[in-house]
Amino acid sequence: MKIQINTDKNIEGHQRLEKYFSEELEKGLARFEDKITRIEVHFGDENGEKFSLNDKKCVLEVRTAKLQPITVTEHAETLEKAFNGALSKIKKSLTTTFEKLKAH
């Protein structure tokens, strides 16, 4: 499972940020590890230096071997909250998707 983390120009994408979120993805999606080929994470700050509630955005795009990519988006006041919300959404989406495949 390859993980790629992208940030917009308003967010500093340093090593520690990448390491932390990569480890959280690996732990959070471990049960789907054999089905996922690639995960792309996109972080953004939609208002730049201006203050605004819920202006941090996290988009998770999960690619699986034989399916279309699954994408979720979450907005929050911090990157961590946006990431955790997106991770929760992607877990639900993957669970639903793979349960439907088992049923057929």
Rank of each mutant, 00 (worst) to 15 (best):
K2A: 14
Q4N: 15
I5A: 00
I5W: 05
I5D: 05
N6C: 05
T7G: 14
T7C: 15
D8I: 02
D8S: 04
N10L: 03
I11L: 13
I11K: 03
Q15K: 11
L17C: 00
Y20R: 12
Y20W: 09
Y20M: 09
S22H: 02
L25V: 06
L29V: 05
A30I: 10
F32K: 01
D34G: 04
D34Y: 15
I39K: 01
V41C: 04
F43L: 12
G44H: 03
G44R: 05
D45V: 11
E46W: 09
N47F: 14
N47T: 14
G48P: 02
G48W: 13
K50L: 01
F51N: 07
S52R: 15
S52G: 10
L53K: 12
N54S: 05
D55A: 05
C58K: 00
L60A: 02
L60D: 05
E61Y: 04
E61H: 05
E61T: 14
R63A: 08
R63I: 09
T64I: 11
A65Q: 08
A65V: 03
A65R: 05
A65G: 03
L67Q: 09
Q68M: 13
P69T: 12
P69E: 14
P69W: 14
I70S: 10
I70L: 12
T71E: 07
V72P: 00
E74Y: 12
H75K: 14
A76E: 02
T78R: 00
T78D: 05
L79Y: 07
K81W: 11
K81G: 08
A86I: 02
A86K: 00
L87A: 01
S88Q: 13
S88N: 15
K89C: 03
I90N: 01
K91S: 10
K91P: 01
K92P: 01
L94D: 04
T96A: 09
T97N: 07
E99M: 15
E99G: 09
H104P: 02
H104K: 13
